[in-house]
Amino acid sequence: MHEVKAKSILSSKNGMNLYRGCSHGCIYCDSRSKCYQMQHEFEDIEVKINAVELLEDALKRKRKRCMIGTGAMTDPYIPIEIQLQHTRQCLNLIEKYGFGLSILTKSNRILRDLDILKSINEKTKCVVQITLTTFDEELCSLIEPNVSTTKDRVEVLKIMRDNGIPTIVWLCPILPFINDTEENINWILDYCEEAKVKGIICFGMGLTLREGNREYFYRALDKKFPGLKQQYIKSFGNDYEIKSKHSERLMDLFHKRCKKSGIIYDIKEIFTYLNTFEDKYESKQISLFDL
């Protein structure tokens, strides 16, 4: 871990990353890609020590309230968050100033902040996003070694459901020759139906590999799935987009089950929902006026 002073905290699209780098160890992580120009070792977490102050200043200056997003590049609940509590402090600010929240994680540590999430959702909109890749817990420990188990993440979804907080699942990545099976997709969709998720984001049955994360991924394959790297190289070469040979069949299965369950799967529709701010107090006032 090392500390830096950041110049700003919110992107032009109101996303924030309180940390840079990650200790989850997911073998497929795109955030390792060199295009993101990280100037330190990925596991050496960069902590933006002035993030909380920067966020408060940014929220105070905004003319219109909006959704604030976090978790796109670095999970907001990596282990050092338990000690530093930067995520919790920032959630408190989002709640205090009446903004909405869209938060993405693979950790059940998010339950620590259930009180704030509920309060945000009572005023505006809080959407919890969880990544699910495999129902197989042993496989989960191989491809995502330092995150909450799949069952623990599903439990988070159910707890959010029971507290009226909408959820979105990221069904990705689906790794060719590893988790690209009908059994896996069906199990994950069973979990999603049970948890009554609002939507599922799936960009296709495969993954992306670019300079930086490709090399790490191949080293992980050599260690955990001996011989599989050669199969990837033979099948895909240096392609950026790695597509499962079962993609068409699995996507058809995915679409049919989502339609049947009433789960949103149109990516544009989901992102529109995630980015749309709602003022529930104002909506209630309008409803009362209509009466």
Rank of each mutant, 00 (worst) to 15 (best):
D152N: 14
D152F: 00
R153K: 14
R153C: 07
R153Q: 06
R153H: 09
V154F: 06
V154S: 05
V154Q: 06
E155P: 00
E155M: 13
V156G: 02
V156F: 01
V156Q: 04
V156I: 03
L157A: 03
L157K: 05
K158S: 10
K158Q: 14
K158E: 15
I159T: 13
I159K: 15
I159Q: 13
R161W: 05
R161N: 13
R161C: 03
R161T: 02
R161K: 15
D162E: 15
D162G: 07
N163P: 08
N163T: 05
I165M: 12
T167A: 12
T167E: 10
I168Y: 14
V169K: 04
V169N: 01
V169G: 00
V169I: 14
W170A: 06
W170H: 15
W170Q: 10
L171N: 03
L171E: 01
C172Y: 09
I174F: 11
I174D: 03
I174C: 12
L175R: 10
P176A: 11
F177Q: 14
I178W: 05
I178Y: 11
N179W: 01
T181N: 01
E183S: 08
E183N: 10
N184L: 06
I185V: 15
N186E: 14
N186V: 13
W187C: 07
W187Y: 11
D190H: 05
Y191F: 14
C192W: 10
C192H: 12
C192P: 09
C192R: 12
C192Y: 12
A195P: 04
A195L: 09
K196I: 01
K198N: 13
K198V: 00
K198G: 00
K198A: 07
G199E: 11
I200Q: 04
I200N: 05
I201W: 05
I201H: 02
C202L: 13
C202Q: 06
C202F: 03
M205A: 06
M205V: 09
G206C: 12
L207C: 15
L207W: 05
L207D: 03
T208Q: 15
T208Y: 03
R210K: 12
R210W: 05
E211V: 08
E211Q: 13
E211H: 12
E211W: 06
G212S: 10
N213Y: 05
N213I: 03
N213G: 03
N213V: 02
R214N: 02
E215W: 04
E215R: 04
Y216C: 04
Y216M: 10
F217Q: 02
Y218K: 04
Y218H: 08
Y218R: 06
R219F: 09
A220K: 07
L221H: 02
D222I: 00
K224N: 14
K224M: 13
F225K: 04
F225R: 02
F225M: 08
F225Y: 08
F225D: 09
P226R: 13
G227Q: 11
G227A: 11
L228I: 00
L228P: 04
L228G: 09
L228C: 09
L228Q: 05
K229D: 09
K229Y: 03
Q230L: 07
Q230Y: 01
Q231C: 00
Q231N: 08
Q231M: 13
Y232W: 07
I233W: 08
I233A: 12
S235I: 00
S235M: 13
F236E: 02
G237C: 08
G237Y: 08
N238M: 13
N238S: 12
D239I: 00
Y240D: 06
Y240Q: 10
E241M: 09
I242G: 01
I242A: 03
